[in-house]
């Protein structure tokens, strides 16, 4: 296993995404329209919108985040994956690179959706440092589990709905932590228990991904 291969692989994944623009041109606008529709559905109740804003943001990130991991990846495509494996790139390294690139893209999605939420919902802006940490933890967990789920469902017909079905329930602790950190900040409560919970979820997901990478690729079609 050669860990120095992760960086060039991540760079290749990101370059492919910037050329195709799948996340920037479809996922982000779709997610932003989700935020807008939810706000309109709730109606003209500014105090209520302020309260539900962060919850809406993280729900949207969770639901649409799966699409980021479902994008066309360099090492996820069967033929390229076979070439990489034949070249001796460990499946674990390929998985780490895919998960890391998805995490970077998810951070980008969150970075765009946060200002949109602030504009539409006007939530109280307190405890931003803890919330930034929570956002990173959400991106890591969602990126890792989404990549694992995308591998599990590779070349199946229903994968666009299967990946969210597998990812959404298992990443609920992350969303819960992110929302509670925000709510806690309003009332000056400590964010630590929630950040620890999110970190624990992340570590568990990453471990599962590392261990599943080899059995998943062995004899893959």
């Amino acid at each position: 296993m050669n860990a120095s291969l992760v960086r060039p692989l991540v760079r290749a994944e990101l370059r492919a995404e910037f050329r195709a623009g799948e996340v920037v041109m479809t996922t982000i606008p779709f997610a932003a329209s989700g935020l807008l529709v939810a706000a309109i559905a709730i109606g003209a109740d500014t105090p209520l919108l302020r309260r539900v804003g962060p919850g809406m943001l993280w729900t949207i990130v969770l639901l649409f985040g799966s699409f980021v991991t479902l994008r066309r990846t360099v090492s996820g495509e069967p033929t390229r994956q076979e070439v990489l494996t034949l070249l001796g790139v460990d499946p674990v390294i390929q998985w780490v690179a895919r998960a890391a690139s998805s995490t970077v893209l998810l951070l980008g999605v969150i970075a765009v959706l946060v200002p949109v939420t602030v504009v539409i919902y006007d939530p109280p802006l307190t405890g931003l440092a803890a919330q930034a940490v929570a956002a990173v933890l959400v991106a890591v967990g969602l990126g890792a589990l989404g990549t694992l789920a995308a591998d599990l469902t590779a070349s199946t017909r229903s994968r666009t709905s299967l990946v969210p079905l597998i990812v959404t329930p298992l990443t609920l602790p992350l969303v819960l932590a992110a929302v509670q950190v925000q709510e806690g900040a309003v009332y000056a409560a400590s964010p630590w228990p929630w950040l620890l919970l999110a970190a624990l979820t992340d570590v568990t997901i990453v471990l599962a991904g590392l261990l599943a990478a080899r059995p998943l690729q062995e004899g893959a079609v």
């Binding site: 509670q180 409560a189 400590s190 228990p193 624990l200 590392l210 261990l211």
Partner: peptide, 27 residues
Amino acid sequence: LRSLVIPGVGIAAVLAGTLSFGGLNGS
């Protein structure tokens, strides 16, 4: 792989321990 997994399990155990016994679950 083992050199990644074993510390990972250790970190998970420490986090779970802190969370459940560190008196942090008040919230």
